[in-house]
C-alpha cells in the first residue's frame, strides 16, 4: 500500500505570544512544531506499515523551515518527505492549499489512502482534507475516531456524527481525517531522530507542479477568501463578583436564584 499523510507546520499554540493591539501572532516568540492533530494521522500511517510492502509519503506545504515537520514524520517512519515551498504557494486559503496539495499527491504517484489531521491549530478549518479529496475525485470520511481494521483492499473505521458515530467500511482510494481519539502518538527514539536528521526532504516549487495544475490557482492568487480585518473579541461584560469565606456557596446559590438560573 502507498499511504500519504498531510502535515503542516504551526506555531506552538500554548507558548506563542499574541500582540493583541496589533492583531498579530508573533511567530518568532515560540518554536514551530508539527500540527498536534497531524501527529495522530502520522501515527496511524506508522501503524499501517505493519502491512508488508506499505510505504508512507509525508507531504507539507509551507516555508523552507517546514522541512522540520517532514523530518519529524520521517523519524516516525515515513519513507519519503516532500515539501512544497515557493513564494507562489504563500498566502493560500483552503481552496488554494488543497489545489497545491492535490497536485503534489498526483505527482507523488499512485496512492491508496490519504491521512489528514482533524484540523490545524492555526487555520482551524477542517476544510483542507475534504477539499483535497474533492480535487482528486475520491471519497472521503471526516472525523474518524477509530481505525478498526486495515487490509490491503479495505479499511474499517468509526466516524463521529452529531448523535454518535457510524461504522464504515471502504475500499481505496480514500481520504480520511482523523480526530485526537484515533490513537496515542508514540515518541520517536533518538536513533530515529538521528536517521531523520540525515534524510533528504524533496523540495518542490510551483513550477514542478505545472503539469498537474493551473499555477494561478496556487497561493494568494488562487485564494477566494481573504482576511479583511482582525480584532480582539469584545469581552462580554461579566459581573466579576468574588465570593470568599464561610457561606460563599450559599451566597452563590442565592445569586443564581436571583438571576433566574435555577431550575424549577
Amino acid at each position: 500500500m502507498h499511504i500519504i499523510v498531510l502535515v503542516k507546520q504551526v506555531p506552538d499554540i500554548e507558548k506563542v505570544q499574541f500582540l493583541k493591539d496589533k492583531g498579530w501572532v508573533d511567530r518568532a516568540s515560540a518554536d514551530s512544531e508539527i500540527n498536534p492533530f497531524d501527529l495522530n494521522a502520522v501515527e496511524a500511517a506508522q501503524q499501517m506499515k505493519e502491512i508488508p510492502g506499505t510505504t508512507v509519503t509525508a507531504i507539507s506545504m509551507g516555508p523552507a523551515s517546514a522541512e522540520a515537520v517532514l523530518k519529524e514524520a520521517i523519524a516516525r517512519d515515513a519513507d519519503r518527505g516532500i515539501l512544497l515551498t515557493d513564494e507562489r504557494f504563500a498566502g493560500a486559503d483552503t481552496l488554494a492549499t488543497s489545489c497545491a496539495l492535490a497536485a503534489a499527491i498526483r505527482k507523488a504517484g499512485d496512492f491508496d489512502l490519504i491521512l489528514c489531521g482533524e484540523k490545524t491549530v492555526d487555520g482551524d478549518t477542517s476544510q483542507v482534507g475534504p477539499s483535497v479529496a474533492e480535487r482528486l475525485g475520491i471519497p472521503h470520511l471526516s472525523f474518524v475516531s477509530e481505525i478498526s481494521a486495515v487490509a490491503e483492499d479495505k479499511i474499517t473505521m468509526v466516524a463521529e456524527t452529531a448523535s454518535g458515530s457510524v461504522i464504515v467500511e471502504s475500499g481505496y482510494p480514500l481520504l480520511i481525517t482523523g480526530t485526537k481519539d484515533l490513537n496515542t502518538p508514540r515518541l520517536p527514539t533518538l536513533k530515529d531522530k538521528l536517521r531523520a536528521r540525515k534524510a533528504e526532504v524533496e523540495k518542490w516549487s510551483a513550477a514542478d507542479l505545472a503539469d498537474m495544475a493551473d499555477l494561478s490557482k496556487f497561493g494568494h492568487e488562487g485564494s477566494a477568501t481573504w482576511v479583511d480585518s482582525i480584532s480582539v473579541p469584545p469581552e462580554k461584560k461579566r459581573k466579576g463578583e468574588i465570593l470568599k469565606g464561610e457561606d460563599s456557596a450559599g451566597k452563590l446559590v442565592a445569586a443564581l436564584d436571583k438571576d433566574g438560573l435555577l431550575k424549577g
Binding site: P139, L141, T156, G164, S165, I167, V168, E169
Partner: peptide, 8 residues
C-alpha cells in the same frame, strides 16, 4: 466504495 455498516 464507502459503505456504512451500522451505527456505533
Amino acid at each position: 466504495t464507502v459503505k456504512v455498516l451500522g451505527k456505533g
